[in-house]
């Protein structure tokens, strides 16, 4: 318990946690509201509205992408902060020395980090989705649904979205445990999940792309996607879980075997 307590304190007192919280609690509902507002104007002017309950309900799920990015930030920084060197003129120390002299059982330490990351990401992504749905549906006004109706329509997609965020965060942790430096994983993973999806590009070339982690995970929450071919949700969840386990396993081997 002491170990989990220590790791939770470390994670929550990092500035990255503040960034992640802002993404989930401010940016996610704000974008859901902006998009909801645009949609309402279109419908009010006689354009095409949301077709059926699910499509309308999905207004809130736009916030998931912010939760994904928040999870990536947390997953990267929870490990990269250990290796950030202080300035040379104040000794150039790194936190990993304090961490590993306190807890030399590295497997247990990584497990504790993964556990608190899962916890914080799950809470923040749930909050992002909940506030996104409330804000998005409220702005839709007469065309929107009551939040509980929207949640009912979404059903398994709600835990699916949280699961996707947690898995992405854990993969980010695994990758950063190997690289030790946070910059490259942060840029690559965030760009991949928000701007240019490598999986999406590859899916134009090969049908194997649907087995890549983000492509496999997207059916867990998104109704319509840009992918022409994707796995059914349960298969996608299984594939995403396998990627997560692989990422953590590779990270664990590197973490346990290498010198600090």
């Amino acid at each position: 318990m002491g170990l989990l307590n220590a790791e939770l304190r470390k994670l929550l007192s990092l500035r990255a946690s503040l960034v992640a919280a802002a993404l989930c609690l401010v940016a996610a509902p704000a974008v859901a509201a902006v998009n909801g507002n645009a949609l309402r104007s279109r419908v009010a002017e006689g354009g095409t509205g949301p077709e059926g309950g699910l499509s309308a309900a999905e207004r809130g799920l736009e916030g998931v992408m912010f939760a994904v990015v928040a999870g990536i930030v947390l997953g990267v920084v929870v490990m990269s902060s250990e290796y950030t060197a202080n300035d040379g003129d104040v000794g150039g120390g790194r936190q990993i020395v304090a961490t590993l002299t306190g807890v030399p059982r590295r497997g247990a330490l990584l497990l504790a980090k993964a556990t608190v990351l899962t916890l914080v990401t799950a809470v923040l992504s749930s909050a992002a989705i909940a506030t996104g749905i409330v804000a998005g549906q409220a702005v839709l006004g007469p065309f929107g649904l009551a939040p509980w109706q929207a949640a009912g329509e979404l059903g398994w997609r709600l835990p699916g979205a949280v699961f996707y965020c947690v898995c992405t965060a854990l993969i980010a942790l695994g990758v950063t445990t190997v690289t030790r430096n946070g910059l490259i994983p942060l840029v690559v993973l965030i760009v991949n999940s928000s701007a240019i999806s490598v999986s999406l590009l590859l899916s134009k070339v090969t049908s194997w792309a649907k087995y890549l982690p983000d492509a496999a995970g997207i059916p867990l929450f998104a109704g319509e996607t840009a992918y022409t071919e994707q796995l059914p949700p349960l298969a996608g969840a299984t594939v995403l879980t396998a990627w997560t386990a692989l990422g953590l396993a590779v990270g664990a081997v590197a973490f346990i075997r290498r010198d600090a």
């Binding site: 007192s13 990092l14 902060s81 000794g91 120390g93 936190q95 304090a98 002299t101």
Partner: peptide, 13 residues
């Protein structure tokens, strides 16, 4: 065991 190596190692934030 108490130890000191590479300064405090405290994260600057």
């Amino acid at each position: 065991v108490g130890s000191l190596l590479e300064g405090s190692g405290a994260h600057r934030s």
